[in-house]
Amino acid sequence: MVIAQFGTFVAFITPLAISLSIRLQALAPGHEEYLGYITGAGAGWVVLTAPFFGVLSDRTRTRIGRRKPFTIGGMLVGIVALFVMATAPSVFVLGVGWVLAQAGWGQVLASLTNRTADRLPEQQRGKVAGLIGFATQVAPVLGVVAAGSFASNALLLFLVPGAIGVVLTLLFILFVGEPDSRRMKFPPLSIGSTLKKFVFNPRQYPDYGWNWLGRFFFYFGLSLNTTFTAFFFAQRLDLTLTAVAGLIAIVSVGGILTTTLGAIGGGFLSDKLRRRRVFVFLSGILFALGAVVMAFSYDLPLLIAGSLISSIGVGMFSAVDQALLLDVLPERETDAGRFMGITGFATSVPQAVAPLLAPVFLLLGATGGEKNYTILYLLAGVCTLIGGFLATRIKSVR
């Protein structure tokens, strides 16, 4: 499970971290706002489809189980997406490729996440979430390092990280079994009842509602911070995007240790102490602190320091908030895929909206053709701080 999610993130997040920026610079120099439109369109696809595929996965009856068909299908679509992005002759086709990547690799990730909701016992949620959180945060680092080595070759820029994802996902498909689901019984669905499953009543499930809202704010801040990282470093250090790709790769390698500290340390401690909320709150504080440091940094040492502090927060949040989600997930036996799909809104909506709004903040007070990254990173910190605080509103989990 951990290895498969690691591979999926190498293939899926590397384009968002660096490959899309490099490809966009070649297709439309000086128009970094297009990156927001592309990533926003991809996230919009997830918003429209995630709960539907979650409900469909819950009710899929095959010899190989409910989740595995979606893992296989998503991987195949994801492979096509990487070729489309690598060979895109225009910004529009590049955007189409990213939407396909969201549809494909996003579905692989969703099916793997649904497996954890199906089978993971409570006493292991923090530990496993910590390992997965570590893997999914380190995976883009490996992808960025690989991509940085092929910055001048568009095909290898996308396909090398993609090959890692395919191999590791195939290992999971071939060697990890899933119970036969052909005898499972579910009530019939109509169009109306299916559409109702796209939403939930927060009064009926208040703790799940607080977790959803906190995750929304945290990922809104994270999306503001990460989408324009390459352009931010290039502006602050007065470098070209191609030159900054290798530098970001080096900085990202340093983030492995701090992400490990946050993800595994937070996940294991949350299980040992049987506390989730305090670690989620702390993760928001740490990310906000790192964002503030980066907002006012104009040299490499301070940029590195801010990035490393933020990575501790991201690692801790990705692990402990995932365990917290599994603790408060409603209707686990029958509708786990549905509620995990709704949870996906808390990630995909910020990914869609934040990049679209970011250019507005970048232009506030901008002078001399330089974008205002200071206000963007400060806003990111405020959002993650709110996201961490909202976890303290949950009552059923300490």
Rank of each mutant, 00 (worst) to 15 (best):
R338L: 09
G148W: 03
T347N: 14
M340K: 02
G192N: 12
T39Q: 10
Y377C: 00
T227S: 10
V349P: 04
V160Q: 08
F287Y: 12
R398C: 07
S19R: 03
V160C: 08
L362N: 01
N372R: 02
N201G: 07
V145R: 07
Q107T: 08
T226V: 14
A28T: 07
S21E: 05
L379D: 00
N114F: 14
G214F: 05
S21N: 09
G344P: 02
V144D: 02
M184Q: 15
G368N: 01
L378Y: 10
F281Y: 10
F216N: 06
T8G: 11
R125I: 08
T334V: 11
D207T: 06
I285F: 04
T62Q: 04
V314A: 15
F92I: 15
A28S: 05
A336T: 06
R67Y: 05
S318N: 15
A295K: 13
E33I: 06
A263V: 10
N225I: 13
I164Y: 11
V293L: 13
E33N: 11
L379P: 02
S190H: 06
I375F: 13
I250K: 09
L261F: 13
W212M: 11
S318R: 11
L195D: 07
F361P: 05
A243D: 13
V93I: 14
N225S: 12
G290R: 00
P51R: 15
F232N: 13
G36H: 05
A230Y: 03
T259S: 14
S252Q: 06
P51V: 15
F228M: 15
T258K: 00
L76C: 09
G97R: 14
P355L: 07
G74K: 04
S297A: 02
R236Y: 12
L239E: 07
F281E: 06
A263Q: 09
V47K: 03
R182H: 12
A154Y: 08
G65R: 11
F389A: 15
L156S: 04
T39A: 07
L159C: 12
I250Y: 11
G381I: 00
A249P: 01
K371A: 13
K197N: 08
A154G: 00
